[in-house]
Structures are given as C-alpha cells and as structure tokens.
Design a protein around this nucleic acid. Structure first.
Length: 293
DNA sequence: CCGCGGGCCTGAGAGC
DNA sequence: TGCTCTCAGGCCCGCG
C-alpha cells in the first residue's frame, strides 16, 4: 500500500498517541509478520517511553527511552489505527478494546495516555524490528537507502549522478530505494507524467553529454517534490488499504492523472493522447505515450 | 555489480 | 451464487 506520503500521514496520526507516552503493554497476536518477531520484542518495548516518532523512507521509527529504536514497515497492506475509546476496555481484565477487534489485527500497543494502537496487515508484508540506536548506521534494512526525496540532498544533480551509467529504465531507477528512498509505483508514474518524461527512457539519459543534469532531470525532480507534497497535504492516497490512523481515507487518489486511468484521455492540456498501461519490471506503468518523452 | 523474475500473503473484482 | 483467474501501494533473494 503505502508510499512515502501514506507513511508520513500515518506518522502524523500516530505522533500524538505515541510521543511522550510510555508503552504499558504490547501484544503480538502471532509469531511473525513478514519475519518472525524478535524473541524479546515485547520485553524490549514494555515500560519504555516513546521520545519521538520519525520516518525514514517508508519506515516509521519510534525512539525509545531505552536507547532502542522500533522500526515499523507497512509493507503493502499494513495500517495503524488509534483507539482511544474511553470505557470500551475493561481495566485489568481483557485489555483489547471490545468491539474493536478486526481480522488481521496483529500487534497492539497500550500506551500510558490511554491510547491503544493497533497494527493491522492482511498480507503481512509489513514487519517490525527493534534495533539499538547506536547500531542504526549498520542496520541492513536502512543501510543502502538513498536520500529522502523531500530532503535537501535530493536534487537534479544528485539524481543525475545516481542514475549515471544505468542501463535500466527511469521507472525502475526511481523505484530503486538506493537511488531515492520513499517512492513507489503510484508516485513514480505520477511524477513521470507531470514531468512529461517517459518511463521507458534509459535512466542514464538524465545526464547530458558532459554529465550535467538535463532540463528533463530538473523537471522530474520538481515533479517528484510537487506530487509528494500535494499527496501528503491530502492525507495520502486510499485505494484499498490505506487509512489515516483516525480511520479517515486519504483523498489524493482523486488527483491521480494517470495511475489506474488506462483508456482515459490524457489530462495534459492540448494533448490528444490516451493513458496507456503496460508492465515494466513486473509492475504496471501508466503513462501517456504522446506527451511523455 | 547489475537487472530481472519469482516469491511472499490475502482479498477484491472481473468474467464465466 | 460461486468458482477461477488476475491483480494489488513493497521488497528480498537467487539467477544469469
């Protein structure tokens, strides 16, 4: 499900429930998600204060008073919801909020502020892992990640260098988290469309003969910035699974110009093309062959 | 090292 | 109604 804007939306929703609160109780309702939970998973969380909730690429990162960091990834179908539901739970008896139980609720956090935070993930491509903050730089899950697309390090020059010599398509390069971290299939399609750049173009062609960024590269970076910022402002995109932690849907899906719009007229003013779909590296690409070059 | 295809899971929707 | 097939917002792994 979630790309950077959805993860950022989830982070903002979880922040008030987590930051500054203590984790009083953790319940894992099965032995694994994508990977088995660490044997000491609950013990390392229980009683710890959450001092901050950040995001790196598509990872949520909760800083704990113990010096650990809880990494959380939503995979394709993961979501969190925050249940405050005063009076619904029976203190000291069954902690899980009655009537709030849903299929695929895998992890529950009970916070000292009364919030109950539930992680739900039907497909279980999501996962959680606790690591020591001191070991963050060596964490394999984070080690190879490229720059944040909304951070200062990501610009046309950087992207041009990162794609230099790449024989693969621009679409595949932008999906490669080592090049830039946080984009997924939807926002890559949308950014390429907005920049009028073809997903089939060789990644290395962002550079001119001297290796400098082309105007196309500049346009592409601007389009990535714009589409991500607009999607975050809209609370992300809700296709199947994504919800804000409040349960509200994001609404950026209504602003898609090409994603899942095969057969529709190209929305570029003056373009008479039609939105097409084809499969690239096993994923659907949506684009307008007429105005994306 | 690089790029690609398969696999991990469940559920929704289309077509018969 | 119900079966089967395809596809889905991610990412790791093994192969050539």
């Amino acid at each position: 499900m979630p790309e950077l804007p959805e993860v950022e939306t989830v982070r903002r929703g979880l922040q008030p429930a987590m930051e500054g609160a203590r984790i009083d109780r953790v319940e894992t309702r099965r032995a694994d998600l994508r990977f088995p939970f660490q044997p000491d998973f609950s013990a390392r969380l229980t009683g710890r204060l959450v001092t901050g909730l950040g995001r790196r690429a598509k990872y949520l990162m909760a800083d704990l008073s113990s010096g650990d960091v809880l990494l959380m990834h939503l995979g394709m179908s993961g979501s969190f919801r925050v249940v405050t539901a005063a009076g619904q739970a029976t203190p000291g008896e069954f902690h899980y909020p009655r009537g709030e139980d849903r299929a695929h609720d895998h992890v529950l956090f009970e916070m000292s502020n009364g919030a109950r935070i539930v992680f739900n993930d039907p497909r279980r491509f999501g996962y959680m892992k606790i690591i020591a903050r001191a070991g963050l730089d060596n964490e394999p899950l984070l080690k190879g990640l490229g720059p944040e697309p909304l951070g200062n390090a990501f610009d046309a020059l950087m992207l041009t260098k990162a794609t230099a010599g790449k024989a693969t398509s621009l679409k595949a390069a932008l999906l490669d988290q080592r090049v830039v971290a946080g984009l997924g299939n939807i926002y890559v399609c949308e950014a390429l469309f907005r920049a009028h750049v073809s997903p089939k173009r060789k990644a290395a062609t962002l550079a001119d003969k001297k290796g400098e960024p082309t105007e196309r590269a500049t346009r592409l970076v601007a389009a990535i910035h714009d589409v991500l910022n607009q999607a975050i402002a809209a609370g992300g995109s809700s296709l199947r699974d994504h919800r804000q932690t409040s349960g509200e849907l994001g609404y950026f899906q209504h602003a898609f110009q090409v994603y899942d719009r095969e057969g529709e007229k190209c929305p570029t003013p003056g373009c008479t093309g039609t939105v097409k779909r084809f499969v690239q590296n096993g994923r659907s690409t949506f684009w307008c062959p007429s105005c994306q070059k």
